[in-house]
């Protein structure tokens, strides 16, 4: 048993390297060669390697800890997220990247045992402050989930729901306008404009996810959080969503959790690597994938862990 495991681990980096097409082949990390280039941090410590600050910070998290009961899920995470950048959160399962993401729009509030310490500011405003209603926060920080989850309502009502509850449209024509623009921006309008009254759950998986994105941008948020938005989709639908993320990044800050390193390489400008509840390394996407500063990051992106 032990013997077979070792051979598998050796085989994986080979396979991964072929897959990692987002990064130029010449810069690809090579387990053996990379070691000779730089001295890497090896231990999992308090300090995050790389650059956690950015030029134009919009979301700033300082020393954030999250506890689920006695479980210390996130430890001392400090990170800045820029105004119009796509930042990808990567890391093995259970490393806390989704938990971190859900702190940013206070979705953890609905979990009774969850407790968040540290400060998180959105545009210099403390989002855990007593003067901020999570309802108002979530209108500014939209979220797209792992599994497409359209409401069991018509396509139109799905997109119109957010504007309706927030009272963003004063009359039907204005609401129509919002729904159409949102669907158009999500690249779904052409496919659904003749069947707006049909249930959103009748669409294909990829279309449902784009409907969810349209629903999110209909509220006109400033940040969009995406929790593995393509993990339930086929490659073609994934490519469409990735194109969409690229387009949306011009207007919104996007934080995306992903298990696919190729996806992180394709869509993001910065990458944050989480490991066992700690933020191990943050840097520009190119540097993370070509020259990671931390041993764990290197192990993960070359496929030795995760």
């Amino acid at each position: 048993m032990t013997e077979t495991k070792i051979t598998e681990e050796e085989a994986v980096p080979e396979a991964r390297r072929v897959e990692t097409d987002g990064v130029p082949a010449a810069q690809k990390p090579n387990g053996v060669a990379a070691h000779t280039v730089v001295e890497r941090v090896a231990e999992l410590g308090e300090k995050t390697v790389g650059e956690v600050r950015c030029d134009n910070p919009f979301i700033v998290t300082e020393n954030v800890d999250v506890y689920y009961g006695d479980n210390h899920a996130i430890q001392n995470v400090t990170l800045e997220i820029g105004k119009s950048e796509v930042i990808a959160l990567i890391g093995p399962s259970g490393c806390g990247k989704s938990t971190y993401l859900r702190c940013l729009n206070r979705m953890n509030d609905s979990i009774e045992s969850a407790r968040v310490t540290g400060t998180i500011t959105l545009d210099r405003q403390d989002i855990y402050g007593s003067d901020l209603d999570p309802v108002a926060l979530r209108a500014r920080v939209g979220m797209v989930f792992q599994k497409p989850n359209p409401f069991p309502k018509s396509i139109y009502d799905n997109v119109a729901y957010g504007p309706r509850i927030h009272g963003l449209a004063s009359d039907r024509a204005e609401l129509d306008e919002i729904v159409h623009t949102s669907l158009d921006r999500a690249g779904l309008l052409k496919e659904v404009k003749d069947r707006m009254d049909e249930p959103g759950t009748g669409l294909s998986g990829g279309q449902q996810q784009r409907l969810c994105i349209a629903r999110t941008i209909a509220v006109n948020p400033e940040v969009i959080l995406m929790d593995e938005p393509c993990s339930a989709l086929d490659p073609i639908a994934t490519a469409r969503i990735e194109d969409l993320i690229d387009e949306l990044s011009r207007d919104y800050a996007i934080v995306i959790v992903t298990h696919s390193m190729q996806q992180a390489a394709r869509v993001s400008q910065r990458v944050a690597y989480f490991h066992l509840g700690r933020l191990v390394e943050v840097d520009e996407t190119n540097r993370i994938f070509t020259n990671p500063q931390h041993k764990l990051t290197e192990d993960y992106i070359t496929g030795r862990i995760g």
């Binding site: 979530r138 209108a139 939209g142 599994k147």
Partner: peptide
């Protein structure tokens, strides 16, 4: 399904 609740909460529904 909890996904429906999350979807609505995520949109800012009370």
């Amino acid at each position: 399904p909890p996904s429906i609740r999350e979807a609505a909460l995520g949109l800012g529904a009370s």
